[in-house]
Nucleic acid binder design. Structure first.
Lengths: 204, 204
DNA sequence: AATTTTACTATATATTTATACAGTATAATG
DNA sequence: CATTATACTGTATAAATATATAGTAAAATT
């Protein structure tokens, strides 16, 4: 995807706005009217440039045959479950754990995610994670040092920074001086990583 | 919304499938081709019936001017502008201040809001507002003590707690010990409230 | 039983629309 | 310095398209 010029961006926006408003793409004349051009060829050349750069597709010989190339916007929305931090047991998606669902565009946080976790306590306060915040959790085992993970140690679920200090030693670090580090020896204690935080939502 | 006949449902489905596939609505001829009709008037009469029953809208004199009436899904979402904290001047919605837009369901934070403000600095750190967070700002003058407001004092825009301590005295309180209280005497200094925070989004 | 709705074929045409061609001018790139 | 990309106006036209008109026939409604 090459660089878009400001004018081409205007044309692209104009197309998107037109589709949002009417449900179908504009004609060359429609674009001219909207942007003040006096020749249909002004729109035509912009469309050709946008097509060449990969921003749109044009179906030749077809009226209003413009489509915006944006795979992200397709199948946009989704209802994501909000689960509470259950004291005992993992935050499963079983219906008794789901307080409600939240409609959120897919890929809202850049990355995919699976559910929202409602935060209890202030152990990650200095990371800007407050009580009742919703953490967007992606179920994954691909964890790097410094990631904020949702971890389960023997029926206890917590949100902490992940830090592997030795092949068998993992530190779960809070972001709050009042809480203490949890050092887990993987040979002695079972540690299950539910996933990691990819975003956060606060409603106030 | 009256009863749809099976054949009309087929036509409606055909339109939806065509839009999903191509990004724009079909012509009469396209519908005929898809459903095996031999006359464009077959499609035309079905379209008229669907319009009469309220399932679609037809823009007269417009090629491919068909839109599916679905009030639930339409208008659910919105593109909200993301504005940066401009050092001088208010965070207006002028295009030069808008870095990009974010698709977000309406009423996502319980309340309506107008734009997202990208946070600079750590003056509200203890309130869980970190650098680069997006604050959902509702433009309003209805502010209560304790609200997080976006305030402008002589070309300086800040995010702070609002606290009125006397009829003419307003304190703008940071949530970080390293920053100091701003006391504003409304008789001496002009204080403009842009709006208040109704929510927060963090992408990590 | 009469009328309306549904469900088509077939043909015609005014209008809409994409798109080519001929220019002008400035900025960016190699 | 030549070339390409950007950014337009203006005119023209073949093709795409909506839409009207004229029929036929079965099903549903009044």
């Amino acid at each position: 995807m090459k660089n878009i010029t400001p004018q081409q961006q205007k044309v692209l926006d104009c197309i998107q706005v037109y589709i949002n408003k009417t449900g179908f793409p504009p004609t060359r004349a429609d674009i001219c009217k909207e942007l003040g051009f006096k020749s249909p060829n002004s729109a035509e050349t912009h469309l050709r440039a946008l097509e060449k750069k990969g921003f749109i597709s044009i179906e030749s010989g077809t009226s209003r045959g413009i489509s915006i190339n944006n795979p992200e916007i397709v199948e946009n929305n989704n209802e994501y479950p909000i689960v509470g931090l259950v004291a005992a047991g993992s935050p499963t998606l079983a219906s008794e754990n789901v307080e409600k669902t939240l409609n959120c565009p897919k890929g809202f946080f850049g990355s995919d995610f699976d559910y929202f976790l409602r935060v209890r306590g202030l152990s990650m306060k200095d990371a800007g994670i407050m009580e009742d915040d919703l953490i967007a959790v992606k179920k994954t085992q691909e964890i790097r040092n410094g990631d904020i993970v949702i971890a389960r140690i023997e029926d206890e679920v917590t949100v902490k920074y992940f830090q592997r200090t030795a092949p068998n030693i993992v530190h779960l670090k809070p972001a709050n001086q009042d809480f203490k580090d949890i050092e887990v020896n993987l040979e002695e204690t079972e540690l299950f990583i539910e996933g990691k935080s990819v975003g956060l939502i606060r409603e106030n």
